[in-house]
Design a protein around this nucleic acid. Structure first.
Length: 204
DNA sequence: CCACGGATTGGCT
DNA sequence: GCCAATCCGTGGA
């Protein structure tokens, strides 16, 4: 069965704004990843902002390297990196070229092609309710489920392989803020955003 | 060349 | 809640 989506892609100008604004406004939008004729989809429920100019926790803080160069390309690119020997994480680059700003996508609520995500994550097609909640509730987990890796680094969100739909309801989402997770520098900045009480958020 | 540590995860206590 | 796994990128000698 083919599923279609009636929402529009977020325009390039959406990404070319302040990283904190984009991190907050990405909540409730829908991440789409097309691969092998499949359309993976999930509602973004948790994000973190990283700012190359003021934020020591940002990969871009100490300047451009081969690893982080996508962060300097300006709003509208996908920055994917490899970490802890096992995991990929995906970010949406924001702001102007040279700024080194990006939003880490930390969790999504899966809404399409869930069975393939299940196979990608657990190498089996039948899972428990608990395993469903663990399918995409972390930055490494959602990349595994959506089959996102370094080949997707520097992808343009205006293209058709990976993009984000403006799926926000008219009703305002209830948004919570907290310190970011898993970092050792600039630890006190309240730059993590998540949809309050959503079951697919990685942590309270 | 080598040492260090990481925007994590999952398994075990 | 704690901690090992795992390996590439980065920076210093």
């Amino acid at each position: 069965m083919k599923t279609t989506f009636t929402f529009d892609k977020l325009p390039l100008k959406f990404y070319k704004r302040d990283v904190l604004t984009v991190a907050r406004e990405l909540l409730g939008t829908t991440l789409i990843r097309k691969k092998d004729n499949l359309t993976f989809a999930g509602i973004i429920v948790e994000t973190e902002a990283y700012d190359g100019k003021t934020d020591q926790a940002a990969h871009s803080f100490n300047g451009m390297t081969k690893r982080n160069e996508t962060m300097f390309k300006g709003g509208g690119y996908l920055y994917v990196y490899f970490t802890y020997g096992n995991h990929y994480c995906c970010n949406v680059v924001t702001g102007n070229p040279g700024g080194g700003c990006a939003v880490l996508i930390r969790a999504v609520e899966p809404i399409n092609e869930i069975e393939t995500m299940t196979i990608n994550r657990y190498s089996k097609s039948t899972i428990s309710d608990k395993e469903l909640l663990n399918l995409t509730n972390g930055p490494g987990k959602l990349c595994k489920a959506f089959s996102i890796d370094l080949k997707d680094n520097s992808a343009e969100l205006s293209d058709d392989q990976i993009f984000i739909l403006n799926s926000k309801n008219n009703k305002l989402e209830n948004i919570s803020t907290s310190k970011r997770i898993g970092i050792s520098k600039s630890v006190d900045l309240p730059w993590r955003f998540f949809i309050t009480d959503n079951k697919f958020v990685s942590r309270k």
